[in-house]
Design a protein around this nucleic acid. Structure first.
Lengths: 150, 150
DNA sequence: GTATCTGCAAATCCTTTGCAAGTCA
DNA sequence: TGACTTGCAAAGGATTTGCAGATAC
């Protein structure tokens, strides 16, 4: 049990080829403290391996998503961000006034999840979207204009 | 006080021109039982008035958003949907298994809103995004594949 | 050796923009 | 009349795809 990455191990186990591109893309995702976009993954990989193409990044992300190893999160920027399944979960409060993202821990929303499950039999996957609104600072500033999207 | 549409009245009051395009775009939005996309608005308007251009739809939406008369909602489809401010509010549970959208009333999430406000001083605007997850049926079906997005 | 992957280039989808012509007030 | 609106066409950004050559196993 000492693989560089459990994801890499699992990819290999499932019969997928461990190409240098895939390894580098995985490293970028796993190494990202935050959530990373396809473009950012591409930039990181291309810095060491200029030959890669961004379509390979998208194809690899597609594969990893399909295998449940990487998750998407839509923070309303008009682009999707990705994070490794292994990197732990939290929720995102996205301020539409200043674009700041506040992280809150998973437990905060567990009661909501329970209510939706109980009353609507709906299993909410709250980790993969941002919750939009206004942070404290922006609320004070005359309600904050809120032109954060796209 | 008997305008066809309160939005139209307000647009005129603010000094914006009531062009036929704007009136028809407004009619499409207000007439939509559900949430409508720019493309759908365009199709509806173009049916009666083939001359319109979709850029006019986007520009009108931009204006109405700015004036707070129309709201966006991102249901994670890779496109934004719109609804009239006057059409009442509710929340959206979007099933990633079958793409179904379940509407829930605003009160259901008010406690969440209060918690976020109290603990994070964050004023969440929950009405403008969908909450993703799996509906009852799709949960039963072996967890449902969940390839709903884009 | 060969099925799987990749790079490349072009296409797609949604949305935005510049500009000259049209039109509401 | 004249500022505000529109149509048109072209650009924009994110993502996807077809295909032929490259490569992991």
């Amino acid at each position: 049990m000492h693989e560089k990455s459990s994801i890499i191990g699992r990819l290999g186990d499932k019969g997928y080829r461990l190409t240098p591109q895939r390894l580098m893309i995985l490293a970028a995702i796993e190494g990202s403290a935050d959530h990373i976009s396809a473009e950012e993954i591409y930039a990181q990989v291309a810095a060491k391996y200029p030959h890669v193409n961004i379509s390979t990044v998208y194809r690899t992300l597609e594969l990893l998503k399909r295998l449940g190893m990487v998750f998407e999160i839509d923070l309303g920027e008009g682009r999707i961000r990705y994070h490794a399944e292994s990197s732990g979960h939290h929720h995102h409060l996205v301020c539409q006034g200043c674009n700041r993202v506040v992280y809150i821990d998973e437990a905060t929303l567990s009661s909501l999840r329970n209510i939706l499950l109980r009353d609507y039999a709906f299993a909410a996957e709250l980790r993969h979207v941002g919750i939009f609104g206004l942070c404290n600072d922006c609320r004070k500033k005359s309600g904050g204009k809120g032109n954060a999207r796209r």
